[in-house]
């Protein structure tokens, strides 16, 4: 009996680690969707670029963990703003699908650009000395603890920014109404840029942590992780920040459970089947509210 509890706790810990990485990426999807009602398909690749920035900072600049993380976050935030300014802003008044296609194009560009510069998978060196603690059979590494705590810290910071600061208020206002809020003096372009910077920065942080937890990185790693994070955002109710966090931890938990119980090749199958069932039963997600369509 106690063996089962220990095993369960161990898997819970793994689920928390995976879920917190998904959550950081999902936040970027959900924030951009909330403010522009646009699916930013390039977001998963910004996460991948984050992992490569971390690799560059660690190998070529020889930086330790904290400065490398900071550099990665700043770098990806700038990348996010650049993508928004160059590729999405000119299309804000165009048909909505044009922006989606542009986002897909930017995603493919980032993947293949990285592939052209780094044809082989890279190995991120261990930036942190990992020590393992044994808590009554459950092994906890310092790396896991740092990933989970740092992610949770960033999530609470984001929640604070969105709900307690003027910038956050402007974000919520723009996602509420796009016609009148600009008339009341809210600098829409600036707020959208800030949203992209925060979202991309969080994805960069996620890339760093993913690179530390699973050290082999390649240019296509962002596709699947990005889609999974997107599923989390939808499961939680897209556009809803707390929903994205909950969705990410649910998805992380489900994936770890499947990997523990079935052959690991069924992971994607179960994740997407879950999405399919949820979309049919509760299309607006766990915390989302149904949109009322006026005729």
């Amino acid at each position: 009996m106690s063996e089962w509890i220990v095993y369960g706790l161990q898997q819970l810990l793994n689920a928390l680690q995976l879920g917190s990485i998904y959550a950081l990426i999902a936040l970027g999807y959900t924030m951009v969707y909330g403010i522009l009602t646009m699916i930013n398909f390039a977001h998963g690749d910004v996460f991948m670029i984050g992992a490569f920035f971390c690799f560059l900072a660690a190998v070529y600049l020889g930086l330790p963990f904290a400065p490398a993380l900071l550099l990665t976050v700043v770098g990806t935030a700038l990348l996010g703003v650049a993508i928004e300014r160059l590729a999405y802003k000119p299309l804000r008044n165009a048909p909505r699908v044009s922006a989606i296609i542009t986002a897909l194009g930017i995603g493919i560009f980032l993947e293949n650009f990285t592939l052209a510069l780094a044809p082989y998978p890279k190995h991120i060196p261990a930036l942190l000395d990992s020590t393992n603690w044994d808590l009554g059979g459950v092994s906890l590494s310092s790396l896991q603890l740092i990933i989970i705590c740092l992610s949770l810290g960033l999530m609470f910071l984001l929640d604070y920014i969105v709900h307690r600061t003027p910038v956050g208020m402007a974000m919520r206002a723009i996602s509420w109404d796009k016609t009148f809020v600009p008339l009341m003096g809210v600098p829409v372009d600036l707020v959208i840029s800030v949203t992209f910077a925060i979202g991309a920065g969080l994805a960069g942080a996620a890339g760093t942590m993913y690179g530390l937890a699973y050290p082999v990185i390649d240019p296509y790693m962002g596709i699947m992780v990005g889609w999974k994070a997107f599923i989390s955002a939808v499961v939680g109710g897209i556009g809803n920040i707390r929903g994205a966090m909950i969705g990410a931890f649910i998805l992380g938990g489900v994936e770890i459970m499947v990997a523990a119980a079935l052959p690991s090749t069924y992971r994607d199958f179960v994740a997407f089947a879950l999405l399919l069932v949820l979309l049919i039963v509760r299309p607006y997600g766990i915390l989302g509210s149904p949109r009322i369509q006026k005729v």
Partner: peptide, 21 residues
């Protein structure tokens, strides 16, 4: 051989920006 897959998506983005339909 490598860069054509970089050029194509960039061209696509440009087409979409200047020719959104």
């Amino acid at each position: 051989g490598v860069w054509r897959m970089v050029i194509m998506p960039l061209a696509l983005v440009l087409v979409m920006i200047f020719w959104p339909r």
